[in-house]
Amino acid sequence: MTKLILSTGNIVSGGPSIIRKSGAYRSNLELTHSLRSSFLAAQQDYAADAYSASSSDSDNAASTNGSGSANGNGFHYSASAWTAHEGGVLYVPRIDWSLAGLQEEPAQYDITAKLFFLATAPVSKRAQYAKEALDLVLKELRVPSVDLLVASFPGMSFDGDCEWEADKLNATQGDDEEEAATWPAVEELYRQGLVKRLGIAEFGSEKLARFLKRVQLRPAVNQINIKNCCNVPPPLVKLAKEQGIDLLVHSDCTDILSRGTLRELLGQGPRGAGVLADSDSGGNGLQGDLAPQWVVKYTAVVRDRGVIENKGYFAGAGLAEV
């Protein structure tokens, strides 16, 4: 099993990936767009350097450098130039940790990490995933802890024609057992002082009530995503108020990275990064069955200025050699 760590770098001033498209309500477009731009940028920055260093024809190098469409022509930069193997982990793209960190003291920031547990990975590994993901965030931001860690579980949403219906439907989603079994993993991060507050996402009133009965450390935050944020299901408002849980808004989907999407991002297709070999024809790239394990989104906001200084994603995936 090879571990892959995908990363976007700081996307906040990185151009249009961050812009919500109209109609793209509850989506993973921000993640997929910014991963794709991150790969492309790294290819341009690292691979083109390597290419031009090995080539005496500078004109040729320049034209390669400037053109992202090289991908579209079936050309792929050699992955070894812009990705990195370290300690059994393949970083896509490679990460220059010397550039990590924030501009001001950690106390100046409100730092949120949201950890997406995915259906494509075993529940038993979630404690390990949580640690991996949070470690990367702390390393990237060079901070000792985050202010809020939100755990997102697969298969949950607020769908329905009205808020009541959405709340009802929500009660049947997800998997209570798995969610309760996972919670101690994030509680542990809290106990270690790496996280100051814990949160969950997309819990309707019934699910939340059931969840609260089973956990030791209660979540301080519940993120919800409803079509019109003014129509919060009243039972949920009531419960959250009673339990002192902040209801925050978000716009992510819980199933943020599917097997197919990941394969497309890394594959040999016209918009792929060319890291992964095609399943049928083989050829260049890694062989095997690639499964997304987790995604973590992190955001650092300068507290008293409301400026988002850093935002990005890491995604972990496992490649099982066939």
Binding site: I19, K21, I224, C230, L247, L248, T299, V301
Partner: peptide
Amino acid sequence: PLVESYLDSVNVDVVTRCELAT
């Protein structure tokens, strides 16, 4: 849409977001 993208990236409670949306 730019403002909404910004609000998507920060922690805002539902009541506040609703008022801002108005």
